[in-house]
């Protein structure tokens, strides 16, 4: 029973087939692939940093101060040169990447948890609780976070836990708004109302039903939050009020390198480049994720 169908493709599809490579590039643009590769590298470095550093990142070598990188008059002993105390820039960069990436991820995790919790509380109680949460969100939006962070660090002093907790408050208001909005709309129609109807407790409704359903959107919001955290952390460290020596982070390196901008610009350029490429990669990936999974965020 073969029926001839002229002018139709063999499988009867009205869509024209794309060639394999073009279809692949359409879903995975080269920029996105590069960004993912770079981020993979950063995570790899963050995990295995102690095994990768050629020198101890704190080891001072006064005989090898301000050595330029290889190809700029330096040697392979210090591939990216050394700083004002003769510390190996590559080793310091690797150690800094570990610290900066870890802080950014922890802080984003904290802000997501805070944001989702507050959003759910606002959506569950509504009424005046909701108004209070929204007012705090408004107040947070009204103040530049950088200023708040500097003030808190000034009053509470600086330690790693305080610093991470503080960065963990960055961006919570975005997550709260998204989580609140999604929870309210889930509540008024559909599966959440149905779960309520079978007698499920609020905890069960929010954690077992609503959270999994909005998780994709939350993950995207988290991803888009990461560049901001990295920028904030590095800016504060750059100003000397973030991470304190002997701890090192990328912003820290730039901050100390800026005094040698004339004589040894590599100290500052290398970590700057890492910051820029990383934040760029995260936002490219975040945009791509958003476009693919949930174009409604922001």
């Amino acid at each position: 029973m073969a029926i001839e169908q002229d002018g139709l493709s063999t499988d009867g599809s009205v869509f024209t087939e794309k060639s394999g490579l073009r279809a692949f590039l359409q879903t995975w643009p080269p920029m996105v692939i590069l960004a993912i590769v770079w981020l993979g590298l950063m995570v790899f470095i963050a995990i295995f940093a102690p095994l990768l550093t050629p020198y101890d990142f704190m080891a001072v070598d006064v005989l090898a101060r301000l050595k330029p990188p290889v190809f700029f008059g330096g040697t392979f002993n210090h591939v990216l040169g050394t700083d004002q105390l003769g510390r190996d820039v590559l080793s310091r960069a690797i150690a800094s990447i570990r610290v900066s990436i870890t802080i950014a991820l922890c802080a984003t995790l904290i802000s997501t948890i805070v944001g989702v919790t507050l959003g759910f509380i606002a959506a569950y109680f509504r009424g005046w609780v909701d108004q209070v949460v929204l007012t705090i969100v408004d107040a947070q939006l009204a103040m530049p976070f950088m200023i708040i962070a500097i003030a808190v660090l000034a009053f509470l002093g600086n330690s790693l836990p305080i610093f991470v907790m503080l960065l963990g408050l960055y961006g919570w208001e975005q997550v709260t708004r998204i989580a609140r909005g999604l929870a309210i709309s889930a509540n008024t129609q559909g599966y959440a109302a149905a779960a309520r109807e079978i007698g499920a407790s609020p905890g069960r409704i929010y954690l077992r039903h609503i959270l999994p359903n909005i998780s994709a959107t939350i993950v995207i919001a988290m991803t888009l939050n990461i560049p901001g955290v990295i920028l904030l952390e590095s800016s504060l460290s750059f100003l000397g009020i973030g991470l304190q020596p002997p701890q090192t982070s990328l912003g820290n390196m730039v901050g100390y390198g800026r005094d040698y901008i004339q004589s040894a610009p590599w100290i500052m350029l290398m970590p700057s480049a890492v910051i820029v490429v990383t934040t760029l990669s995260v936002s490219i990936m975040g945009d791509w994720l958003r476009d693919r999974i949930d174009p409604t965020v922001k």
Partner: peptide, 12 residues
């Protein structure tokens, strides 16, 4: 680039 390059990097 405008919002992924930190101000201090651009300044330097």
């Amino acid at each position: 680039f405008g919002f992924t390059v930190p101000a201090f990097v651009l300044a330097l």
